[in-house]
Amino acid sequence: MDPNIQPLTPDILARMRAALPSLSWPKVDPESSWRKSYRIWESVGMGWNDNLQSRVLGSLVLERSPIDSSRFKLKVRSQLLMIHNPDGPYGGLREIEADLECELDALATPRRWRVVNRFHRHGQVMEHLPLLIEGRFEDGLISSSINGRPQALEIAAPWSNEWCLFEALPRMAAGDPTEQRFQQLHQMRSALPDQRLFRRAEADYVSSHYGPLRCFSQTGYANLPIDYWVDDKGDLPFVTNLHTAYIIDDQAEAKIERILKDKVMLQFEKEELAQ
């Protein structure tokens, strides 16, 4: 075991060449219209350098647009590569496209949603495997269906979803961040009770690459601790969860397209490889 291995932080991601030290991101008003793109990356922790088990796994793109003073739309596209063997090829993909209408509250509570799941094999969508989730939250009750069939969901406010938390964190960081206890509707399918989202000031630090970073953490049922790293402008460039990281990257989807086209594993950021 490499004695240096420790939980992921933004600087460790830079050291592991998962994030460029020169990485920058546009500053946006969290309540405005914006688009953020994250690369999903993992390291199974075998070592720092030339870690063949480190790789790009997918992308997460969020697009926010206000509806009125109390609601906004959140458009989500998530791609997760399936890996057949340690060196690729990548011929399988799980894709999620979601349209959510959310409340402008602390947890960005979803009010209406439509989530399309697609499974790709050898570059083709498997049309015979549809999974469409639709639902609404009204008067404190959730009504949801999967492929048109009503689904029983035991979940009550306060509640949220992991995509919505990416939207909520910058707003939370800009205000008075009080601890939130809630239920999480994971991928709008799995109800995870007893979640806790809180400031973890003891983990804050001034990154030599990315400036001051404040840490918010989520713990709870069926979750290993998730760390949300917020910068001094209240943006969310990194989210780390055990050996997985979401790294802000406006080229994330292009990288996935390239991996699927070339069937070659992408591990490290180019600038670092050149050094």
Partner: peptide, 22 residues
């Protein structure tokens, strides 16, 4: 119908279960 991501059950189990469910 779907393979998975080696050593990342956190991400791939949701996909495997979703494909099975579909």
């Amino acid at each position: 119908i779907l393979s998975g991501v080696n050593r990342n059950g956190m991400l791939s189990d949701a996909a495997i279960a979703a494909a099975s469910e579909a």
